[in-house]
Amino acid sequence: MERVILSTAMGPHIHDGSRFSRIMNGYILALLPAALWGCIRYGMPGVRTILLSVGSAILWEWMARKLMKRSMTLHDGSAIVHGLLLGMMLPPNSSWWIVITGTFFMIVVGKQFFGGVGCYPLNPVLVGFAILHVSWPSRMCSHFTMANSDLNGLTLEPLEALKSYGPSVTDVYKATDLLQGFQMGGIGTGAVWLLTIGGLYLMARGFAPWRVSVAYLLGVATTAGLFYMIDASQFANPLFHLFAGMTVFGAFFLTTDYTTCPVNSMARMIYGFSAGMLIILIRNLGGYADGTVFAILILNLFHPLIDRIHWPVTGLDARTLKRGN
């Protein structure tokens, strides 16, 4: 009889078939409608920025992994997702060097310096965007870069308008327009309803932690509502805050980044809710028009701390802890 050599292992011997690359594919699929809408609305400049961002992100990732002599991680699709996210957040007419610098700081500094997916402490997309935003504020304003373009509707970012002219602008920027995406801003961050569809798809597939997104939107709505109740003449209504700027984009695609968000159910809700609260605090009391990026970055720093809130481990009592010491 032929000698049979068996493969040995301990359990489990089955797997539910999930893969990280599949989750990333889900993200790409969820982002595509909003990205396409942005491309149609802004035309070639939008297409160019998104493609440049994705392409350079892939290139930076490849170079970083090669130089560090690590296994290639391009196949998991995280570089594409990060490039797509950053591209969608940038203004349509961004200079090519803005995009390249942004993806460099995102992939090389924010992500690969720490070891890639699973290891970085801050969401690399936000790191890249924040560096650009702080370094070249004027070039990161959509209305500035699009000054010479011919667009229907208002050519001022709604949150910039709110900062400059006060809550009276909420009459000009109607909630339905904002919802449909007729607002200036990043290429893909405006189409709120398309982003929501993408986000719901991710939640339904279990690709994104739904507790974070829901708590985040709740946080935005409650805090904005409180401010509105206190002084309606000074602060905008919660609906405006929900639909304007990057709020929804952040809810479904930025806060839900696995590596930088907590894993326990309660911690996820606290994380999301605080991020939502912080956004409104920055918008209403701080210096920035749209606080989404910085609010989430700050919460990223706190995620290991928040993650200590979890259900007690069954059977883990003082005896075990003593033995552990």
Binding site: F20, G115, Y258, V263, N264, V313, T314
Partner: peptide
């Protein structure tokens, strides 16, 4: 059968939290 054998790797944890949500004794 060999075609259905599941192999595990030492890939880094992506912190998705699925293991935590399925754990019956709430281990992190």
């Amino acid at each position: 059968p060999a075609s259905k054998v599941v192999t595990f790797t030492d890939a880094p944890c992506i912190n998705c939290g699925r293991c935590v949500s399925v754990c019956p004794v709430n281990i992190q």
